[in-house]
């Protein structure tokens, strides 16, 4: 795609390269939007996100809720007539938003951090402490208390985490992948 503005071009190219998707092929058929079950909770349709990337509108895209509300159900990509896996584009946009400190949905990002910290600490996610830490850090302490208690009562939230043996190797995977990106 050609751009007069270098910043816009750079943004388009960065998203295209990170997502490895032919974003320029989108011709706005809106098949993605008509099958997207997240749109009623989001601020832009998937085709609008693609159009904004095509136009290099970095701030509008990175500050949108849609890229975070997208649950990566992959319906849009499976139906796209141009073979654009839109969920991969949404992931690339989330990564760029994190890097540039422009995260619109702070709690969703917080959840991902808490989840990965648990995986990094034990090798496996300890759902009980992971949920408790998320609740504490997000300040949303009271919701789901009844469900949590019922799960605990049924033995579905074990108190102690399982710790894997190959911790060093796991640490290396986290460190190296963070360094690469």
């Amino acid at each position: 795609m050609s751009f007069l503005n270098g910043d816009k071009r750079n943004f388009f190219n960065a998203v295209r390269e990170m997502s490895r998707q032919p974003i320029e092929l989108c011709y706005q058929c809106q098949k993605c939007a008509s099958g997207c079950i997240a749109t009623e909770y989001a601020d832009y349709y998937p085709n609008e996100i693609l159009r904004m990337v095509q136009f290099g509108q970095k701030d509008r895209v990175l500050n949108s809720s849609s890229i975070w509300i997208c649950s990566s159900c992959e319906t849009c990509g499976a139906r796209c007539p141009n073979g654009i896996n839109i969920a991969e584009v949404m992931d690339a946009l989330k990564e760029i938003a994190i890097r540039e400190n422009k995260v619109k949905e702070k709690n969703i990002h917080l959840f991902h951090s808490v989840f990965l910290n648990s995986a990094r600490a034990h090798g496996r996610v300890h759902e009980g402490t992971m949920m408790a830490i998320y609740k504490f850090k997000s300040g949303d302490l009271m919701s789901d208390m009844d469900i949590g208690w019922e799960m605990f009562r049924k033995g579905k939230l074990p108190i102690l985490p399982h710790r894997i043996k190959a911790k060093g190797q796991l640490r290396k995977i986290f460190d190296k992948t963070t360094a690469h990106s």
Partner: peptide, 15 residues
């Protein structure tokens, strides 16, 4: 080990 689930692919593709 944990597969990283949605949290990994939403924040770090390589991970």
């Amino acid at each position: 080990v944990c597969c990283g689930a949605t949290s990994a692919h939403s924040t770090n593709h390589l991970l």
